[in-house]
């Protein structure tokens, strides 16, 4: 039991919380047809993180968070600028900005010799889920013991705070996010500026991305921004239900992804271990495939069946 508490539980918590923060926000990205903004943001935060790190020389610090948030805002403004004044198609503008900023991050990383010491690009891409350990936990009752809980790894506590922030953000701005996603014109005319709401959404996305980034790596952050929301989108037409389902999907991806990575190969009789972060994203993707195929109303299988029934009538 204590092995589970000390080694598995922290990783599960880390993965699930990272997934949840991104998964909830992802709903609005998907609805705004900005799914790839999650992709872009998780790339552009790299230079921000590196610079934040250069200032403090501490991983998982709030300075890195700040740097990432700044980088995200900078990227969004740059994309807008290129799109507007350069008359460049949005997808292309996004592509130019995020590849360049990521490249800049990589080069700064190597240039300053930070690479290999504390931060490296592979980690940025893959994350480091397995590094989370909670040595003070010995029994289940420790889960209710405040003092022991406080000894949870810093990254988990940080993600917990970020999750709270995300949930408060969504509850507080639910109505505003909804209207500005559905009908920006009406939203603007009622005084809910879609521009500012969009920007604050992106800032939240950046915060979630950075918090999740150190745990699961940048590419998996993208998976968590898109897959749970897309899964939920296949299953419901109600925004609140969609948020709820995407939350469940995120948590279950975090849980089962980790379990599969930690125990799957052993059960199959293999020796090797696999990346837990990768497995979480794979599970998230599989959930989405299942939803796309078998969703009761919008699933491909059901739709085919309905069409056939229709044709035979």
């Amino acid at each position: 039991m204590d092995i589970f508490l000390q080694f598995d539980l922290p990783s599960i918590l880390l993965g699930s919380l990272a997934a949840l923060a991104c998964g909830l926000l992802g709903n609005f990205l998907v609805l705004r047809k900005q799914a790839l903004m999650g992709d872009a943001i998780s790339h552009v935060v790299l230079p921000g993180i590196v610079i934040g790190f250069l200032f403090t020389h501490e991983t998982s610090s709030w300075a890195m968070m700040l740097g990432a948030g700044g980088a995200a805002i900078f990227a969004v403004l740059l994309i807008e600028l290129i799109r507007r004044i350069g008359n460049v198609e949005p997808g292309a503008a996004m592509g130019v900005v995020f590849t360049t900023m990521f490249a800049a991050g990589v080069v700064i990383l190597e240039q300053t010799g930070t690479a290999g010491v504390h931060l490296d690009v592979e980690h940025a891409l893959y994350g480091n889920l397995e590094s989370a350990i909670w040595l003070d936990a010995y029994s289940l009752s420790d889960l209710w013991n405040w003092q022991v809980l406080m000894t949870l790894p810093e990254s988990i506590k940080q993600l917990f705070v970020v999750n709270m922030l995300v949930i408060v953000f969504i509850v507080l701005f639910f109505k505003e996010l909804k209207i500005s996603s559905f009908d920006p014109l009406l939203s603007a005319s009622l005084g809910f500026s879609p521009k500012w709401l969009g920007l604050s959404l992106i800032v939240m996305v950046a915060i979630a991305a950075v918090a999740a980034f150190t745990a699961v790596g940048s590419i998996l952050v993208i998976a968590m921004f898109i897959c749970p929301a897309a899964t939920a989108r296949m299953l419901t037409d109600n925004l609140k239900a969609q948020l709820f389902i995407s939350g469940i999907a995120s948590l279950s991806a975090g849980l089962f992804g980790y379990l599969l990575a930690a125990f799957g190969p052993g059960l199959l009789g293999y020796e090797f271990s696999v990346s837990a972060a990768g497995m979480i994203a794979v599970v998230a993707g599989l959930q989405q495939v299942l939803a796309m195929l078998f969703a009761p109303h919008y699933g491909v299988v059901m739709r085919r069946r309905r069409q056939r029934a229709h044709a035979s009538v």
Partner: peptide, 20 residues
């Protein structure tokens, strides 16, 4: 001008008129 696939019901859309 809007995405009709958006997860909202008829009454949700009408309610949006009251958001102001």
């Amino acid at each position: 001008a809007v995405d009709w696939d958006f997860p909202a019901t008829a009454i949700d859309v009408v309610l949006m008129g009251l958001y102001g």
